[in-house]
Simulated assay, not measured.
Amino acid sequence: MQLTVLGCAGSAPGPDLPTSGYLVEAGGARIVLELGSGVFGPLTRLCDPFDLDAVLLSHLHLDHCADFGSLTVYRREHPEPPYDVRARRLPVFAPAHAPSRLANAHAASRAELATTDLTDTFDFVPLVPGHYAVGPVDVEVAAMRHICEAYGFRISHGGVSLVFTGDTVPCPELVRLAEGADLLLADSAWRAQAGRANYLHMSGREAGEVARSAGVGRLVLTHVLPWSDRDGVLRDAAEAFPGPVTLATPGATYAV
């Protein structure tokens, strides 16, 4: 299994730093995990978007799904698609309200929205806790604790597993999902701070504590806010987790 970081900024992009987006390749399957602002371009450097096998969206804040509009345009408007995109719709595993939410983002007017139905191009699969198959890859889904409906994913193939937290605060559901994972890709928005809002994000220290509790092999910190202290987030996580810890950067690859 290989993980490639397309973007990793939290909440808003930074200079040359797109928001959340990752390409996971395993067993011949290509899965895009999140499609935040600015990640579609880097994706096209790595593979033809027509070759994707699935899209996973943990939740529908724009820093995790804004470039779904770019994928929509590409699949709908490309003059020479390699196959009939309406006969071979791309599976999109996302919260149940994704079809209407993403159609609203795609349409330019109320009149256009009335005729915008993305289900002609995408096969939307509403997420609930449980297991899903993408070719030979198993995707386990667990509900996380964020300010909206949000999920974490455990992607497994060939005896290895990668866990992505999505956006969440520490919770037992996350520790259970991540237990024994080879790599934990963890929301680490900021340094620990007094009085921060509940149900938003983890700090670097909290991500490290979750990684330690779950006994993961490696911790990769992502979704650091552009105005946060990245080096401080890394130090905090490394103090809490005894294993290898790195900061995600665009273009970085991890063999799992």
Rank of each mutant, 00 (worst) to 15 (best):
V175A: 11
G28F: 11
A29W: 06
A237T: 08
Y199T: 03
D84V: 11
V163E: 03
E112M: 15
T246K: 08
V175P: 02
V5D: 04
H157A: 10
R196P: 01
R89F: 14
A105F: 12
F153N: 04
N198I: 05
A237P: 10
R86D: 04
P95N: 06
R230Q: 07
V160Q: 12
T246P: 02
L57I: 13
L225Y: 09
C148E: 14
T19E: 15
V256G: 11
A214H: 06
L162F: 09
P81L: 02
R196E: 02
L225G: 01
L35C: 09
T253S: 14
E112G: 00
R191P: 00
R110V: 14
A186P: 08
S156Q: 05
Y132C: 03
E179G: 11
L62G: 12
D231M: 08
A150S: 15
T119N: 14
Y22C: 02
V125A: 12
V139G: 10
V256M: 09
R212V: 01
E149H: 05
P91M: 09
A189Q: 02
P129H: 07
H157R: 05
D231E: 13
G69V: 15
S228D: 07
D48G: 14
P13N: 15
C148R: 14
G27V: 06
H64M: 06
A98D: 10
T168W: 10
R212C: 06
G135N: 06
P244H: 08
D187K: 01
V73K: 12
L200R: 11
G166P: 00
H157Y: 13
E179H: 11
S11P: 05
V134P: 01
G158P: 14
R45V: 07
F241R: 04
G215F: 03
W227K: 15
P250V: 10
V224P: 02
N104L: 14
L113G: 04
V137E: 03
G215C: 05
V85H: 11
A9G: 13
E80R: 06
D138F: 03
L33I: 02
R45E: 15
D53H: 07
R75C: 07
P242R: 01
F68I: 10
F164Q: 03
F122H: 10
Y151G: 05
P82Q: 14
D67M: 14
